[in-house]
Design a protein around this nucleic acid. Sequence first.
DNA 1: CATCTCTTGTTATGTTATTACATTTCTATT
DNA 2: AATAGAAATGTAATAACATAACAAGAGATG
Lengths: 161, 161
Amino acid sequence: MAEAKAFHAHDHTGCRGAALAHAEAVARDKGLRFTPVRRRALEILLEEHRALGAYDVLERLSADGFGAQPPVAYRALEFLVEHGFAHRIRRLNAFTACAHPGDAHAPAFFICESCDSVAEAPAEPVLTALRKEAAHIGFTVSRMNIEAVGTCPACAAGSPA
Amino acid sequence: MAEAKAFHAHDHTGCRGAALAHAEAVARDKGLRFTPVRRRALEILLEEHRALGAYDVLERLSADGFGAQPPVAYRALEFLVEHGFAHRIRRLNAFTACAHPGDAHAPAFFICESCDSVAEAPAEPVLTALRKEAAHIGFTVSRMNIEAVGTCPACAAGSPA
DNA sequence: CATCTCTTGTTATGTTATTACATTTCTATT
DNA sequence: AATAGAAATGTAATAACATAACAAGAGATG
Ligand SMILES: [Zn+2]
Ligand SMILES: [Zn+2]
Ligand SMILES: [Zn+2]
Ligand SMILES: [Zn+2]
């Protein structure tokens, strides 16, 4: 339950701060360059537990004085995804901040079709089932996307977020 | 093993014929209009166990005398997906013929990054695991996408398809 | 036949993503 | 500190994917 912050009231300021701090720490450890655009892009994604399109992010970045062309956003987002600070949701052509930074994780995304919130939950059992299927057919999985569309608890209860 | 035809030599003519026959039968049963464009679109997808972009399909359709504008392809593909004759692979922005027509199924897709073949495997266990995860967070799953990228057995063995 | 619905086709436009290249910033080495 | 190489940023241009809106045709229903 603590696993799906998107669907419940929570200390989101802490949530955001922790993610940012984590990213900073990892960057220091691994010698990554957590530059201003990249940092700002992550902050933008962290504002809500939703997924933002690259162009949405771009708009905000350029409003903040960064470049105004698509590669500016795509590159920053690519960096975040590459290092596990964000995830790409293919179903939405969008990106979302990682909600479980630090844990090595195989995330599953639960997308509410009525309020657009996106929850990330650890999905080891799902991954296990998938790898088993893959093993049957001799396939080696290197990356995967697990995305479910449906209804979040708030919307199911009649009080969309 | 029989489940991942894309990765093994098989009677693909039969494979294709069966899928087409199945679509025809379902259309008859359900009173759907399996029109020439729709049929041709399915044939095109059935040519290989790969995923084709809408514009690839469009190109072939228009070469065959059908309309040359995007909606022609998108509509035919939408019809096929809607009725379970094809699937959309979000990761690739592409479509592939259903490899297990008839079975009510929750498919997982295994995409080989070296030869581009796409295998579809039944993924009920994966869906079950996913639903369980969803239940934890109070989410109701209505649809899901499970897409894995990796290496198919042929490519792993050094003989790309 | 009249009518209604579904399907097809076209034009136009919107949205998402990448390529290519110039410039700047950082890092490492001298 | 100077400098060479690598990484990051910025821009312009374009490619790739997708939908909206509307007119015309084909099929079903009375
Ligand atoms: Zn939060
Ligand atoms: Zn995550
Ligand atoms: Zn086949
Ligand atoms: Zn299928």
